[in-house]
Nucleic acid binder design. Structure first.
Lengths: 338, 338
DNA sequence: GATCAATGTGGAAGCGCTCTCACACTTTCA
DNA sequence: TGAAAGTGTGAGAGCGCTTCCACATTGATC
């Protein structure tokens, strides 16, 4: 007699179907070597009993957990509300769902909490990890490769050598954005860059420099923002004070560009006629500014999907050995600000 | 001889510590009935071997998974980028971390994907669930209570009877917000409400009605928005067209209020002198508008923490039987718009 | 000094599953 | 017709852990 209230086990399914537990297991897992009649009997038994496999038991023998972690470093308010993460999560979840894997969210802070995350990963509680790198140097890459857990970064980490990652070509993006301004005839072009501890910010600034030098334009009008709207305002004010003759600004994020637009409007400058502005991201903000922002699109969801696919390949062993990098080209979205 | 590369097992720990597996297990799980010397030996063995318990094996026998799901319904871009979810996740994660539980994120869409979520929950893959209800009627509450999984809603669900939830008192919030306008002498007060399929929106509108009736003011100036900035703009325009004499607007979200502020500015009305505006949420937006928004604060993180605590009590059986509801009072944050 | 409880310990069962292996039975082909 | 190959099946061995139970030991109590 079996307990009445507990979930049915494979044994019961086998008994009801009139086969052995081994055959029932094979039938359920879609294995070969099962006769059509046996499979039908098992299917029927599964249905009538409402059988559902016990994941822990399965996991114990297969040594897989069928779940992967998404590691979000430093979930302070700003970072977390960033559409970057929302879209990354969506992209990852979409791919994982297709592979019938679960998404375990790890909000990795530093310090004691960070140690907890590391411990969790060492436990082999997940089969792999996607790191939504906000491009900070937090030692995660080293730790992950040390414990040999399959993992992929979305966004280039600071120590990219040993780790597979997917990133947008931010140098090209910065270059293209700047070229939009050059091509429309801007002569005095500045930039509002992001924090120097993020690879994306550094790369975009790099691209700006390249384009400016190629066009023989001066590269002295640089201000640094923090990827927030307020930071963009402040940087724009500083920039305009130092260089009142600016007629073009390449901004490293749409949010900062939105701030810059405000400052330009307040100072009585028309956009794009007096000063043309190009943003970066195209994650929604650019469609709500006035005027609408010309910007560089990062296909985040696609990046996340691509990263997840690479992870899945690592997990099932079909990935080539060694770290891979996938660089996705950005595309300029033309609207009204430049 | 044991495999070299595999994780050490409890057996090896026991052998190294010179005790039985049972004692080692007790020592590791902080159980009583272990002598100090045995415990020390086990601790030492754990340290030197780098032992880490296998969660699947443990889970198989304890019938716990030590993880809880956070269910986010319908993760379209708007919903997901909402600070509401970001903060909910943070609050939940904070409490779970303290209890050494893992957060499994379930992005529950409708249809086939939704079925997958339900299946996952039925598997008893998690010990409990926090539902970040965006207040839609998606049958989740029924399903969860049907399978008997401990769960708590953040935000009142549409069918609240059988389910424990934590919510802010949105009726009171709507009332308080309106009273701010009444108290400053507004005579002609309108409201921009949220969609009628969200309990929060309905409740806030309800509160507005209460306050208006109590002050013997007319309740005809109502427009409906969709909780976005653009929706707020549109609703504000409509409202002003129908009621050009408005001198106060209670808006059901800060984002919509931001849109309304724009429209008011465009129409040459000064805020708060010509028209006073009160928002709702105080999740960051209100501190970036011009003028700064007077608003009603929802303590989301605290709500999420409270909800999680209730869930933990359900999970360990210390909760009183029956569904509970915790209603948190909102507070008015006075800034410049009213 | 005998009796009892409290305390620490190890043996062993068993959680629910997968998968190897041996075996029976069929088909194919020389 | 016999051997070889292929196919479906069940017995059974674990996966690594917790926990029940029985068995010492000890200290407290009469």
């Amino acid at each position: 007699m079996t307990a009445v209230n507990s979930q049915p086990t494979l044994d019961e399914v086998a008994r009801v179907a009139g086969v052995s537990r081994a055959t029932a297991s094979r039938a359920i897992n879609g294995g070969s070597r099962v006769s059509a009649s046996a499979r039908a009997a098992v299917d029927e038994a599964v249905r009538t009993l409402g059988y559902v496999p016990n994941p822990a038991a399965r996991s114990l023998v297969t040594r897989r957990t069928d779940s992967v972690a998404v590691i979000v470093p430093e979930p302070d308010e700003r970072v977390f509300s960033d559409p970057f993460f929302a879209r990354t999560l969506r992209g990852v979840d979409r791919m994982l769902a297709a592979a019938d894997l679960q998404l375990v969210l790890l909000l990795a802070t530093r310090g004691a909490e960070g140690a907890r995350t590391m411990r969790y990963l060492s436990h082999r509680h997940v089969d792999g990890a996607v790191v939504a790198s906000h491009h900070r140097n937090d030692g995660l890459a080293d730790h992950l490769s040390a414990i040999g857990l399959p993992c992929v970064f979305v966004g280039r980490p600071w120590s990219p050598d040993r780790v597979t990652y997917v990133d947008v070509d931010n140098v090209a993006g910065g270059r293209e954005a700047t070229r939009v301004l050059i091509d429309r005839g801007c002569q005095r072009i500045g930039t509002i860059a992001g924090p120097a501890d993020m690879t994306a910010a550094v790369d975009r600034l790099h691209g700006w420099h390249e384009a400016m030098r190629a066009a023989d334009l001066p590269t002295d009008a640089v201000a640094i923002g923090d990827f927030t709207e307020a930071g963009g305002e402040e940087a724009a004010r500083e920039l305009l004070e130092r260089h009142p003759d600016l007629d073009g600004i390449a901004v490293a994020s749409d949010l900062m560009a939105a701030g810059a637009l405000k400052v330009l409007a307040d100072s009585g400058r028309r956009v794009p006629d007096d000063v043309a502005v190009v943003g970066y991201d195209d994650l929604g903000v650019a469609e709500r500014t006035s005027p609408l922002l010309t910007t560089v699109r990062q296909p985040i969801v696609e990046m996340a999907e691509r990263a997840t696919r690479l992870l899945l390949e690592q997990m099932d062993g079909s990935a080539p050995p060694g770290a891979m990098r996938v660089i996705i080209p950005p595309s300029v979205i033309r609207r009204d600000s430049a």
